[in-house]
Every structure is written in C-alpha cells, then in structure tokens.
Design a protein around this nucleic acid. Structure first.
Lengths: 342, 342
DNA sequence: TGTTAGCACTCTTACCTTTTGAGTGCTAAC
DNA sequence: GTTAGCACTCAAAAGGTAAGAGTGCTAACA
C-alpha cells in the first residue's frame, strides 16, 4: 500500500467520516470546514481527483461528490482512524446489561447480541461457546419418572448440557449402575467430539446382551456430546438493517443469508484474529458485498471459544463500533470465564 | 351482518381471491372469466358498485378496480371461503419436519415456527408451553462440582426446567439432605407460580439459622418455578414480511413490534379460541393495522398450553393458510402430548 | 511550484405538462 | 334485469425544462 501525503490522508479521513455520518456523497466545499488546515475548495478538488485516480475514492457520477471506495475504507481502518474511547459510563452500562443474565452461556450470548444490536444499530451475530477439544468431565443420570430421565454432561471447557431420555422399560437401579460403569470406563476423559455414531456402534458390540437396554441412554449421551462441541448461531437486530439506505436494495437477500447461519459460521472460522474487519467484497459472499462485517473472538479461561460480531453497511462507524465491540467481547469473556470456574 | 344475494357473494369471493393472488385492484373485466356464470362486465360493475356502497369493497381511486375492505375480508372468512384441504403429501411433510426435533418443547416450537414461516411466507410467532396452574411435581439437585450443582424441576404439566447454581461453600451431604427436606415439605405439590420472592421471604424466616446457607439454592429454585409458568415468545421468518408490498411501507415498525413480543402476547391471551383470525384494525395495535393475524392454540394432554400463529398482509391467503396452521397446530399438540406422557 | 479564482460543463433531481389507458358510472336500448 | 356504448376520471408513464450541486480545467498569482 502506497504512502499518502499527510494532506491526502487528512482529506481521505474527512471524506470517510463525513460520508459515514451523512450517507451522502461528499463535495469539496462541504469538506472545507472539516479539515484541520485552510485551503480553497479547488485545492481539495485537486487532491480528491488524485485520490480518485489512486482508487481511494469513487464518484457515483461526474457531477456528484466523492464516496469512499472499499480500498479507501481499508486504508482508513488500518491507518487513519483513531479509535473512540468508551466512557466509564458506557462501560458500566454494558456490564450492567450483561451482568443480569448469567444463568447459562446461551443466555449471556443472547443478551450480548441484543445489547450489541442496540448499541450499533446493526444486526448482531454471535456463536455460543464451543471447544472441539473439550473432554467429557462428568456425566449424571437423573431419574425423573419411572421411564424418564435427564442426562447431564459437563465438559472440561465448562460447557454444561442436558437432555431428556425416555425409555420403554423402567429405570432400575441396576440399569443406572450399569450406565455409570460404562460411562466412567468409556466416556469420561475422552473428547466429546469423538463420541459419534461410529464409536457407539463399536461400543454396542462390546456390550453384548446389555446393548439393547443401554442403547437409548447411550445414544442420548452421544448426541449430547456431539452438540457440546458444536456452536449455535444467534442473530439479533435484523430489523436494524432496514435503517441503512446503503443496503436497503437487497435487505431481503441479506437477511436470508444471515438466517441460514452456516455460511457466516464458515466465514467466522476463516478469520480467527482477535478483531476482524471485512469491508465489502473482502469476504467471499455475494450477499455481503455491500456490507461490512466486524467480528471478534471471545475467550473463556484463556481459550478461544466463540465469536461476537456485527453486520452493517460499508459506511459503518468503524471508529466507534470497533472499540465498542472489543469491550463487549472482553466483558462476555470475563463473565463466561467466571461462570466456568469453580 | 346483512345477507348478500348469491351473485354478490360469488362476485365478492372472486374479487377477494383475485386480489389475494395478484395484489392488484380488480376490475370488472378481469373478473368475468373467474365467475361461475356469464354476465357482462356492466352487470358486474353494477354489482360491484353496490358492494362498494355496502362497504365490502373499496376503490383506491375513481378509475381503479376494487379492493376488498376489512369488512369484505371478514365476510369472506366467515361465510364464503371454502377451506383448502391439505394433501396427504403435505401432511406427511409437516409431520416429518416436526418429528425430528423432540428433544425439548422449545425445540419443537422453534421448528414449528420455522416450518410455518416457510409454509406461509409470513412471519411466524409462537409461545412455548405454559400452564399457570402447573404444580411442582418433582425437584432434583444434581451436584456437578464441589460448589456447583444443577437443579432440575418437573411440573404437573410436564414442563422440565433446569438451572445451574453456584455456592460459596461446599455442597455437603447434609446440605443436600436439608434442601430435599425443605423442598418436599414446601415446594412439591404447590403451584409453581406461587413460589415467588414473597414466598421465599416468609420461608427464610421460618428456616432460622439455616436460611443463609440455603438461600442460593432456594432462590434458584424459585426462579426456576416462576419461569416454568411463563411462556417465551418465538419469532421466525421476519424477512418474509419484506415480500409483501401491502405492508412494505412500515415493515420496520412491524418488525420492531413483533420483536418486543409482549404486546403480541397480550393479544394472544385476549383471544383463546381454537382458531383466531384478526383482520386489519380488528386488533388494537396501530402497528398491525395493515396486517392480518391468524393464530391458533395448541393443547398438551388436552390442556390449552400455547399459541402458534402467523402475521402477514391483510390479503393473505386465508383459505389455504388457516387449514395449514390448524393442521400444524394439531401436530405440535400431539408431539408435545406424547413427550409429556410417561 | 503549489494554490486559487473563475467558469464552462455535466449530470441528477425536482417539477411541470402531456399522453396513455385502465376502469368507472351513466344512459338508453333490448 | 341486462347490456352496449360512451363520456369521464385519474394514476402512472413519458417527455421536457429548469435548478443546483459539484466537477475539471485554465490562467493568474504568491
């Protein structure tokens, strides 16, 4: 990336900030009062013409003002922008809103997404904690009725999952004991992700005549184990997307894309930096080509566990929202870490 | 409601069905091939003029075709429409899609909403099962770590809830036993809705010196009990609302309204029929005045438990969607009833 | 050499007018 | 009671003009 003169940088930054604020193409005269130096509009025009030629600015049509190009935004985000500093007040507001709902990691993420959507006026996405290397730490079988039980599983990364099992036979003490034996021998201490159907089948063989009676319980447990590694996608504030004229042309497409979840999830796994900013076509999906994505990974107990992010127009307020997301992410990490520790 | 001549009824029905199909005002000539009798366009015009005068049809402007009024839709839904009969194929599709996810009532409702949204091309709303008279049937305390436990609660209506509790002290056998004593004496058999904070406070007094140590566990249990009675609102397919030109003027308002959930929930509780159709301003909310609501209550074990519904434009395909929703509702009821039985 | 005033030029947007055509309501004949 | 015929209405489309924001270029200036 070439070096821009100091004045060009200032002009580029001013165009971008103005365009972010108003959404209208920015003309040379509009810019004058926003610049930290005094020159005439003609000078600004000359500079802008060069910036256009270099590819940092674009013109919707000849007689219109300038609009930042994707390359312009990138330069701004990487080198020009000075991050907004959150006030203590804002920090406390975030903490308060998140602090109330620590019943489960899912709830925390849900609240976080909701807060994020409100804070940014964008759609907020997040993934629930996942850890593909998580090991099964503990399993409990809780009888609830004669033929009804709950299986509870805790993994090394603190994920707690439970499910209901229904059996055709009564859950006698014998069966419960046998279940615990099998579990202690073959499940505890093993990675949750390995408890798949293939594993179950080899297991069934080794059980012999007990296999039949154990099957429902073990199937439920292995399903539980396999969901423990997988993360769920949460989406909030979709309606905020309607407020941005930039993307209003294909909001429907965009919303459908977000709803599907999977492609986004792929995108997230391809970018594991602490903070990721994808502007316009920098991502591979056509549906997102007019949008910017900002997302950040949160840690639980120092372990990378999931993603929190926002989707908005390319003229999103990077300088304000990136620090906001960063702080929110750190708070979520802290809350979830505290929740896991014993 | 006055009686309309047979011919007027047929014309009204044809106008409505055509308008539902195309979304365009319907003129007298367009109508001719759709009528089961042969008359001239002039005759149809005369009849339509009378229907307009009576209030069943409206004209966007003098030289336009006719559009059904709210009163017109009402007459159609109540007396003219002949319900579409679902094919076995469609029925099986619905059953299949719902059958796969019987892990928890919430999941079932989530899938049902999703299926409903796809099926109707509308936004789908549902409430998770609730039963304000539910009685606490069973409570289990499952130790998971030294200071970490899970409380599981089952109500008479089959609702199963669980939560995690963290304590500052070790969960000794004594404490667990004491907990079960208190629970058996004061919780089991009592309505979940009564286990509120006030109840907890009187309880705390009667416990004396044990109160302090029991508090976190009992607070968690009472929170659990109070959530068991409350139903949650699920929303799917919001983006479908963007496809209907009728409501596109204020989609944002509408989406925000649906997201809030509470007003909708009030609306649901005010209409407890098995099948409810609210057309345009028949409901009290300004945000819904251009929309129709169709919702239906599902039963679990014969007990009215929750709502499934759709929100769409007033020119929604009543004849097809009402039977569809009805069938879906019955399937959901059946699945949840089966899940509760032991 | 960089900066600036001045100006012709461009192109969108808003506004006005005209035309078109779908659809009506009415009248008179059947 | 039904229908052909016709004048009438009005939204939407099409065309045409004017306004204005903003540009690029030129020539003068410091």
């Amino acid at each position: 990336m070439e070096e821009l003169s100091d004045r060009k940088q200032k002009i580029l930054a001013a165009v971008i900030e103005q365009y972010i604020a108003t959404g209208e193409p920015v003309g040379s005269k509009t810019l004058l009062p926003l610049l930290p130096f005094s020159v005439s509009s003609a000078t600004v025009r000359n500079e802008m013409a060069e910036l256009s030629e270099m590819g940092y600015l674009e013109q919707p049509h000849t007689s219109a003002g300038r609009v930042p190009s994707q390359m312009g935004y990138r330069y701004y985000v990487d080198r020009l922008m000075n991050n907004y500093e959150l006030s203590d007040r804002e920090k406390r507001t975030i903490e308060m809103k998140l602090g109330t709902s620590v019943r489960s990691p899912e709830k925390v993420l849900e609240t976080a997404s909701s807060v994020l959507a409100d804070m940014t006026n964008c759609a907020a996405v997040s993934t629930t904690p996942s850890d593909s290397e998580a090991v099964i730490r503990r399993v409990e079988l809780v009888p609830i009725g004669a033929r009804l039980a709950m299986i509870v599983m805790l993994t090394s990364s603190g994920i707690l999952k439970s499910t209901i099992v229904r059996t055709d036979y009564e859950l006698t003490l014998d069966i419960v004991e046998a279940f615990y034996n099998i579990v202690n021998k073959l499940f505890i201490g093993n990675p949750a992700s390995e408890m798949n159907l293939a594993f179950l089948q080899t297991l069934a063989v080794s059980l012999g005549d007990k296999a039949l009676i154990m099957t429902p319980l073990l199937v439920a447990l292995s399903e539980l184990a396999s969901t423990a590694g997988k993360s769920e996608m949460l989406l909030e504030g979709q309606s905020n997307l309607l407020n941005h004229s930039q993307i209003s042309s294909n909001v429907y497409e965009l919303m459908e894309f977000l709803r599907k979840g999977e492609p986004l999830s792929n995108l997230f796994s391809a970018h594991k930096d602490e903070m990721n900013v994808l502007i316009g076509k920098e991502n591979m999906y056509r549906e997102l080509e007019n949008s910017s994505l900002i997302f950040s990974r949160y840690n639980i107990g120092g372990r990378d566990s999931g993603t929190l992010g926002i989707v908005g127009p390319t003229n999103i307020d990077y300088a304000r929202l990136i620090p906001g997301l960063k702080y929110l992410t750190s708070v979520v990490g802290k809350i979830l870490t505290d929740a896991v520790e014993e």
